[in-house]
Amino acid sequence: MHTIDIITTPAEMLDLVQQAASWIKDPAEFVHWTDREFKFQQPISQFVEGSHPKEVFLLREGGVSIAYAELHKNRFGWVIARVLVHPEFRNQGYARKIMQACIEHVFQTQFVVSLFCILDNSPAFKLYQSLGFKALEKYPDQGLQRMSLISSALVSNPTPLQTA
């Protein structure tokens, strides 16, 4: 049985991002997890500077950390970032589980959640589409695709516009 913890304290978040980063063994995968501005094996203290998440999600099974994801708040609203599954547990549905937990958490208070996918990360892109995310604008100079998911509660019960 798995558990998903939501961590909000900076010290714990730093420990967890260091743990998750240690799961990455090659530079190409590192770019898929971060973006092109960071360098493989760059000190985590530099990596997180200026991009602190509001919450970190950690999926564990039997006390073993299996999957990691971050929630950020920015001009796009809530943004899911840095989803990663430990290499020994990939292709077993854990990325989907942690994504669903993030989505459900955001949808408790908001109607839209976004993310940015590296353009050549087709496994992640397919996962996000299967969860209902729609591709929006591309940022080719950064190698990113913005994607968003709208809560079914908003779609099925839209608030009528007030007219004067």
Rank of each mutant, 00 (worst) to 15 (best):
K97L: 08
K97D: 13
G63N: 01
S151N: 07
H72P: 02
F38G: 00
R75F: 03
Y68V: 01
I98K: 09
F76T: 03
I44Q: 05
N74P: 02
H52G: 13
S51Y: 11
L115K: 00
S151D: 06
Q92F: 06
P53K: 07
Q145L: 06
T8W: 12
S152K: 10
R90N: 12
F38P: 07
K138S: 05
G132T: 08
I150D: 00
L161P: 00
P87E: 12
E104M: 12
A21M: 09
M1G: 12
V85H: 01
T8G: 13
P87R: 08
V79M: 06
A101Y: 15
E104I: 11
I80E: 02
E37G: 15
A11T: 03
R90A: 05
F89R: 03
A67I: 04
L149P: 10
S65T: 07
A95S: 12
P10F: 08
G77V: 02
S45P: 03
V83W: 00
F111Q: 03
I6C: 05
D141F: 05
Y68R: 04
I98M: 12
H2L: 09
I7W: 15
L58P: 04
S122F: 00
F47V: 15
H52R: 10
C117Y: 04
R60D: 01
T3S: 13
S151M: 04
E88T: 09
I4C: 11
I150R: 10
S148N: 10
G63E: 07
L136W: 00
F40K: 15
F116A: 03
A135L: 04
P160Q: 15
M99R: 08
L127I: 02
E70W: 04
K39D: 13
G77S: 05
